[in-house]
Design a protein around this nucleic acid. Structure first.
Lengths: 149, 149
DNA sequence: TTGGGATAATTCGTACTACGAACCAAACTA
DNA sequence: TAGTTTGGTTCGTAGTACGAATTATCCCAA
């Protein structure tokens, strides 16, 4: 009601956009018979096999949460745990062939869906939006990787 | 790698921004001893008491999921179920006094956090970002309410 | 070289999320 | 008034996320 500062408007917009993105992401995940978390996992792994520890960093999860997530993905044949050559405590989590295919397919679809969100914007506005988002991301330690973590 | 279209860049940015927003939202929720879902619930209820059915629409949840969410919030003294006067099957879910306070406090904090995300952008870019986000939101049926659903 | 602290990961218990199917009761409608 | 729709709950299943405790390995320093 009444007055609303630009800051408040922007804050509200960011929250709603966040929820909208999550909803789309979840829907696409479901279409691929994945939970959003599993989808995120396989997308990260598209960047190559990594240890549980780094995975926890990428997904912002405690290691105890990770065990189960990887367990379930492994049970579904999407990933496998490979012992690290030089550290007998460590595993590396890698996509299986099936995992690679599913991840690529999912990534493709989710990208399309996201692009579709901005389809109403003219090219200039899209470029401006991309720039603004990138500036926010770099200012908040979001990795520069080419996959969407 | 190599070439990346503007669409792909934007799509990736949206996904990452979405995750970033969720992370911030979750962190603030936690600081208020709420789960993100409970936080979302009380924020929606700031707009006034509503029935389970509409609530499901607002939160994009099945009614069976809602029962538990409202149960737990009720157990915590945040909301209460009030029988609808004119339909003896229906409840309306309303914030308790405690719920109102907590929701207002949470809303305040989360808004600040979100605004802080964009603090590096100049005023012009912020305005542009707000406009672009609003255009996306209106194009995708996100309600015009003043609370962040 | 051995002992002690850090590190990689798992297990366990708890709480919460989300769904669909089955169900009940009140409301509507033909 | 019978039959259908609607509002909400219950139940079972699967998944998510955490922290504390545990095990095994690694690494460093005395």
């Amino acid at each position: 009601m009444g007055e609303r500062t630009g800051q408040q408007q922007l804050a509200a917009g960011l929250v709603r956009l966040g929820f909208l993105v999550q909803r789309e992401y979840g829907e696409v995940s479901r279409q691929h018979d994945l939970t959003p978390q599993q989808a995120q996992l396989v997308c990260v792994l598209l960047g190559g096999p990594i240890g549980m520890a780094e995975l926890g960093g990428a997904l912002h999860l405690e290691k105890s949460s990770l065990t189960g997530l990887v367990d379930r993905a492994e049970r579904r044949g999407l990933v496998s745990r490979v012992r690290d050559a030089r550290d007998r405590r460590a595993y590396r989590v890698a996509l299986t062939q099936q995992g690679v295919e599913l991840a690529a397919c999912f990534h493709e679809h989710v990208s399309r869906r996201m692009a579709a969100l901005a389809v109403d914007l003219c090219a200039t506005d899209q470029a401006g939006l991309t720039a603004a988002i990138n500036q926010i991301l770099i200012g908040h330690g979001v990795a520069e990787l080419f996959t969407d973590d």
